[in-house]
Design a protein around this nucleic acid. Structure first.
Lengths: 205, 205
DNA sequence: GTCTATAACCGGATAGAC
DNA sequence: GTCTATCCGGTTATAGAC
């Protein structure tokens, strides 16, 4: 049986998550984390030896929040239609509830690319299954001739990028109007799936 | 006539650009910038009063490298086909030569969202022209019924995101093979334009 | 303008009492 | 486990000679 984590330890991790997400690894201050957790700096070092160790813990937790169930979602798909639908609806819904995720991960991707890529490889996401499915489906008569890798990148781009660029879309396109932006996000799953389907299927009017 | 900038000043800005892009605002060190420019720290403060002032100068320069000609490119478009072609080919080519740009700007977008959005507004990019063109074109009989804002965001997403996520695509999809990744980028302009065209135009086989 | 030396400060980490 | 007090290295910024 897993030993129950102390209350303080979780409080620290939660506070660290908040500050690291807001300020990034380099911008975050141990003092601010301590203040947010309502404890003192020394205690941070008692639970986690260093800032880097604390960050590592936070990153792993945040990362698995994002990727723990994606492999299973993909695995259920038998056709490209299902893959698109499952993938997009899962990603957009998940990012709607955790909009900070893409920037947090991309930030670390720049500081430490190999570590992040290794984490993705270990996440259970089955690349060969994905490629196999896409290659098989690309032979269908009703589907246009596209490179499966581009299709995969397109699905990711259309789902994730609006969250990465959210302040620009909100500020520039919607003049800071939060309601209009939220509407836009709510329409997004439906729009992306029909947009991609229109692109890859032949003979639709 | 504009006074010619001293050699040293430009050397500092170039060095700062390099370091800030690589390490980000918070991760960059004035010492490293000085070393890169082959001068000493004191001289940095002689030319620019503080780290923040130097960063501001660098950011403005990098930003205008990215956006100075985009407004003119968009302005030449009369139809949605032209808009897509001009926009995608300009962006992908520009990002191919400056792949660091998206992350640098997105990083600052998190630190300072309003400043970045204000810069975009002042960049001469004519939002109403863009919307007007898209709305007009969306009435065409040969075009599917799509929300113009989503189309605009799609064009941006498909063009920019692969550069943002480059280490993941390179590392995870292409197993670190740089040549395959470069090929992928070279195919990208062509792929995106035909993908978007297939999505928005009716009755294509 | 450019340098060396140093001030002033900040932030991560530790010592040691309770 | 939790606290206060403090250390110590590193970083921005300045003083002052040349």
């Amino acid at each position: 049986m897993v030993k129950k984590k102390t209350n303080t330890e979780q409080r620290i991790v939660d506070a660290a998550k908040e500050v690291f997400i807001l300020k990034g690894h380099d911008g975050a201050r141990m003092q601010e984390i301590a203040d947010t957790a309502s404890i003192n700096k020394a205690l941070l070092h008692y639970y986690f030896r260093s800032k880097d160790k604390l960050f590592e813990r936070v990153f792993h937790e945040v990362f698995s929040e994002a990727f723990s169930s994606i492999a299973e979602v993909i695995g259920r798909a038998n056709t490209i239609e299902e893959l698109i639908e499952y993938f997009v609806s899962y990603y957009v819904a998940m990012l709607k509830s955790k909009p900070y995720l893409p920037n947090f991960i991309l930030h670390e991707l720049n500081r430490n690319p190999f570590m992040v890529v290794d984490l993705i490889k270990d996440s259970g996401m089955d690349k060969s299954f994905l490629i196999q499915l896409l290659v098989k489906e690309s032979n269908r008569k009703d589907i246009r001739d596209f490179n499966p890798v581009h299709i995969m990148v397109n699905i990711l781009s259309l789902s994730i990028f609006p969250f990465v660029a959210a302040p620009i879309i909100k500020g520039f396109i919607f003049d800071g109007n939060k309601v209009e932006f939220d509407n836009f996000i709510d329409e997004r799953t439906q729009h992306i799936t029909s947009f991609i389907n229109a692109a890859i299927f032949k003979n639709q009017s």
